[in-house]
Design a protein around this nucleic acid. Structure first.
Lengths: 155, 155
DNA sequence: TTGATTTATATGTTATAACAGCTATTGTTA
DNA sequence: TAACAATAGCTGTTATAACATATAAATCAA
């Protein structure tokens, strides 16, 4: 069965406020998920940040996206998109080309190699997804999404 | 009002599965929270990782904890507790002492300076906590905690 | 058109995270 | 007790994140 957060973090005292427990639960759950994503992606030689970029660029299709746009679509904002894309270009997962219409922009596109990697890795991640959340009723997941929306929406 | 995740990440297509949206929401919400925690703690010269250590050591009291125990209690596991504690000792937030009974252990304890920093910073973080989650009914927060427990519990 | 401003990306630097291997200490057991 | 294994922490190295600043191109205003 599911252990609670207090036990997981070996805390001796229960949480003082339910709000504190809720936000810490979010942080803790994300850490657990990120750790597992990292593990699953390790055999493919990419981080979950890079996987995220590949998903974004596949979504953009042949038009590609410039670095700033990639940054805006990331799950967690990266302040150094340039070098992230550098590395991915170096490993051949993406290509980059300076936009002739606006030479400030560098358009990034996913390569065949990047697409192939996505095709390989995605089913593995979907296994994780089903294992973690597949047994939870849809209604509960929708409520989860709603509450998290609210938390993010309150600045 | 609260924007949804699809709009936030400028996705053109809706999520294929509610499970995917739920897990991404968790990751995204945690990233937003961590960013804000980092901002709030910046004036105090510590990261949220270090804040977490201070909370843990305050909870342990005068007995302190050894490095491994600190690591086990962290919200997100850090594989380099030694140097994390090095830095905190250097800035005077914690003290360390080799355990005379088992000389492999190094017991870490929070210092007065560390306690003072906690006293200063904690109210600021509670402001964030209230702002983010204070308006959400307790019942909803408890459900959130439950679902997240389930997600973490499914390995 | 010139100069100022904005936008997009790149670069230099520092700090931290991640990974692997190493040392010291204790516990186990033949 | 000697040899081996397990545990805790440290250290070296590399990679990435974070921050500030710089460069280049486009836009705007006079």
């Amino acid at each position: 069965m599911s252990e609670n957060l207090q036990a997981e973090l070996k805390q001796t005292k229960p949480f003082a406020r339910v709000t504190a427990e809720a936000l810490l639960s979010v942080l803790r759950t994300a850490a657990v998920l990120e750790h597992q994503l990292t593990e699953v992606l390790k055999p493919y030689g990419i981080t979950h940040t890079q996987y995220n970029v590949l998903r974004i660029l596949r979504g953009a299709g042949a038009d590609g996206l410039c670095g700033r746009e990639v940054g805006e679509r990331m799950v967690s904002r990266v302040p150094d998109v340039s070098r992230l894309l550098d590395r991915m270009e170096e490993t051949g997962l993406i290509s980059r080309e300076r936009d002739p219409l606006d030479r400030r922009h560098v358009t990034a596109r996913i390569t065949r190699k990047g697409l192939a990697l996505l095709d390989q890795a995605t089913p593995r991640l979907e296994v994780v997804e089903r294992a973690r959340a597949g047994q939870i009723p849809t209604g509960q997941l929708k409520q989860l999404i709603e509450v998290l929306n609210t938390i993010r929406g309150n600045p």
